[in-house]
């Protein structure tokens, strides 16, 4: 039921978000249409990448405290979502940077942070697949997830000291602010991506549980043969 509501909500919000991004929002004066990718890029970064990092942190900490395997699944799904959303966000960044900066990638603060975050997610995922034992995997991955996510703020701090080429955040205290239509579009797109993220997350969590059950019964059958 919960999944159904989320799926409907994300479908209902994604369509108007697309309309607003391509038709409603005014074209930016200097960057032209390339700027429209901003409405996708920012929510992907904030909700997709940082959100996954926070969820992986919660999952790892939750497992270490409660030792309940459901938190391990939670963390694993968060890392998977992190890989997908951070990659998508890096791709949108590159699509934008090529026409605007004339280069695919610049080693500035946020870009580097995202790449390192992606590498940590991938490392977490690889660690999972090289650990055959269920309990051991949960424990070690929780430790690595915790260590990896603690790294993110320190990483941000250290990378931030580099001179940054990334456009300064416009939606922040002290930021320049944006045109009202642009603000609405960004908000709509953020809501749509939030629902989409939540939908995929819950769906994937259910699948992870089923996968585990299948694994368990396969082992039972093999043991009885």
């Amino acid at each position: 039921m919960k999944v159904k509501i989320l799926s409907i909500l994300s479908a209902v919000t994604l369509l108007p978000a697309l309309y607003m991004i391509f038709l409603f929002a005014p074209t930016e004066a200097t960057q032209g249409h390339a700027q429209r990718i901003f409405y996708i890029h920012v929510p992907l970064a904030v909700i997709g990448a940082y959100g996954s990092a926070i969820l992986l942190f919660i999952g790892s900490l939750g497992f270490l405290i409660t030792r309940d395997l459901k938190w391990d699944r939670f963390g694993a799904v968060a890392a998977e979502m992190g890989i997908v959303f951070t990659s998508a966000q890096l791709l949108t960044a590159m699509m934008w940077a090529k026409p605007i900066w004339g280069t695919w990638y610049v080693f500035d603060s946020r870009g580097t942070l995202q790449i390192v975050l992606l590498l940590i997610f991938v490392a977490y995922f690889m660690l999972r697949s090289y650990l055959p034992d269920r309990d051991k995997r949960a424990k070690l991955c929780a430790v690595f997830g915790l260590l990896g996510m603690v790294d993110v703020p320190i990483n941000y701090l250290s990378i931030y000291l580099f001179r940054t080429q990334h456009p300064q955040a416009v939606i922040s205290p002290g930021g320049g602010g944006v045109e009202r239509e642009m603000g609405y579009t960004l908000l709509m797109s953020a809501i749509a991506i939030l629902f989409f993220y939540a939908y995929v997350f819950v769906r994937r969590l259910t699948i992870a549980r089923v996968e585990e059950e299948v694994d368990y019964y396969t082992q039972v059958i093999l043991a009885n043969e």
């Binding site: 580097t112 390192v116 590498l119 940590i120 490392a123 690889m126 660690l127 690595f144 260590l147 990896g148 790294d151 320190i154 990483n155 701090l157 250290s158 990378i159 580099f162």
Partner: peptide, 14 residues
């Protein structure tokens, strides 16, 4: 190395 290099990025940068 797969686990360690991403985590030590702040150390190496700093």
């Amino acid at each position: 190395p797969i686990l360690q290099i991403p985590l030590t990025v702040p150390v190496v940068i700093a």
